[in-house]
Design a protein around this nucleic acid. Structure first.
Lengths: 114, 114
DNA sequence: GCGATATATTCACTGACATGTATATACACC
DNA sequence: GGTGTATATACATGTCAGTGAATATATCGC
């Protein structure tokens, strides 16, 4: 399937699975309990997470233990780093103001009427 | 549409748009040149990015200038922070080893022997 | 007013993906 | 061997998101 980290985390079920692994490795069965989808679905999501580098597997008897791997998180962090100046208060110079530029953001509530 | 930051960035075209705005605000036309999709597509992606908080808009004559907003980036950073211990070399204690757990990742090439 | 330019929206299509059910594979234990 | 449990895969289905073409809206200059 070959997904990049953003696509891999775009699915809420996959994010739940990742969070279920935050505190260490777990067998599929335990993940199923927290994922909110059937075992077959979890298995497919785990495959995607594995292919995108988010998890590792190791056999343990008839079970398979999944665990998080650091690489894709590092990758996300590196990407974010390129935008860090957006929020790491560098508002002292007006270059920042040029980029931040009046947060309207409530554009939906804008236009009291027309 | 209501997208969370991960879904918003899952689309490659939207990531290209975000990158096009890294160095400051731009009108839609310039973004179209870099996005690789037609103007109507860019407009729709900009709407999604706006609804998810990634960009702000301000009118400038007959054009509209889009710019990045910091909030969703902060949000992503906060999420990532919960996993930072995965890669911020805290391998000095074996608690980390429990979680990192032998990066197999090349599960295909796994286990030269054991 | 009119025409031209910039951007947004509607419509129809298509492809991808998440899901469940059912089935297959792998391993453990007897 | 056989039976039971744990996990993976195949198949069919429905939904949704990204796309382009065409159209609508807004703003400028005259």
């Amino acid at each position: 399937m070959q997904m990049n980290p953003f696509e891999a985390l775009a699915d809420p079920t996959r994010r739940r699975i990742v969070e279920a692994l935050r505190c260490g490795e777990r067998p599929v069965g335990e993940i199923v309990d927290r994922a909110g989808v059937r075992q077959s679905g979890v298995s497919r999501h785990l495959r995607i997470l594995h292919e995108s580098g988010f998890v590792s597997v190791r056999p343990d008897g008839q079970r398979r233990l999944y665990a998080l791997r650091p690489e894709p998180f590092r990758e996300l962090d590196a990407w974010l780093a390129g935008y860090r100046r957006l929020w790491e208060a560098r508002l002292d110079r007006f270059g920042a103001a040029l980029e931040e530029r009046r947060g309207d953001r409530g554009a939906t509530k804008k236009e009291p009427r027309k």
